[in-house]
Design a protein around this nucleic acid. Structure first.
Lengths: 153, 153
DNA sequence: CGTGAAAAGATACACAA
DNA sequence: TTGTGTATCTTTTCACG
């Protein structure tokens, strides 16, 4: 893992469909070693996948909400059931166990407020959920930025 | 925008490097119309980009923190300067203006607690920042899930 | 790591249904 | 609008220096 690997990762985070040849040019390498490095990065799991990024506005999914959830208690089965429920909800595109006053932070993407309300009701219907608090994303300043790769790996 | 387009988007959100031919097979179409549709989705901006997704643990970027920021006031120049500052901070991979008690929600990725502290100090050094609160991501239940595409577009 | 050549695959287009 | 076929171009792969 050297400077060139990091450079490749940086580029692929922005243009995931770069071919080996294009990538090679940009990192000033010939295609062969570039392909070898890329394969190594993929096989090792450092590159875990490639994804298309969609425009939410154009898809009428303009409403992003951050929902904080607190559970009643933290018995193992309640936790498991909650996480399974959340996993099946497509509107929830991210879910983290977090420190602080709440147990979970969910990132929710919906079309509009009625759809948001439906989701909230689904969450509140879960018996292990104590309470939830929502914060609407009014504007996105930045998102999906490339990861800051540590320079000394 | 019909069922096939949605199917393509769904697939590309999970496998961004699918070729036109592979994609065509999976949506039961021949390559030509599939390529035409894909081009349309790209040109229209519905597909905004393709990205490689990296494994944070393997890159020693295991610490994700959600940082809430409140500004002193909301004069236009203070807001602009704050957002410019945040935009230049590589550790901040997302930043939203949010409703609720705070003004901004930042998603921060760092290597460890010392690096986290450095970032907090950078934020606190900004004169327009009133206060910040951090919530650590202890565990990620789900993240980067495909968007829930509305079925009736 | 680089070069070169061979093989495989993808894209683009014209035309027909 | 989709399907077929073809031609072209690009990419990938691999052996070897």
């Amino acid at each position: 893992m050297d400077r060139i690997d990091r450079q490749m990762l940086q580029l692929l985070q922005q243009e995931g469909r770069l071919s080996t040849v294009e990538l090679a040019e940009r990192v000033a390498l010939s295609p062969s070693p570039c392909a070898r490095r890329l394969k190594r990065l993929e096989d090792s799991g450092i590159i875990s996948s490639y994804r298309a990024v969609l425009n939410r506005k154009l898809l009428q999914l303009a409403t992003t909400v951050f929902v904080n959830v607190r559970l009643m208690h933290h018995r193992e089965d309640a936790v498991r059931l909650f996480e399974e429920a959340v996993t099946t909800m497509d509107e929830v595109i991210a879910c983290h166990v977090v420190s602080g006053a709440f147990d979970y932070l969910l990132e929710v993407v919906v079309r509009d407020l009625p759809d948001y309300e439906k989701l909230v009701r689904k969450l509140q219907a879960l018996s292990m959920v104590q309470d939830i608090t929502s914060n609407f994303a009014i504007r996105t300043v930045k998102s999906g930025t490339p990861l800051p790769l540590p320079g000394q790996l």
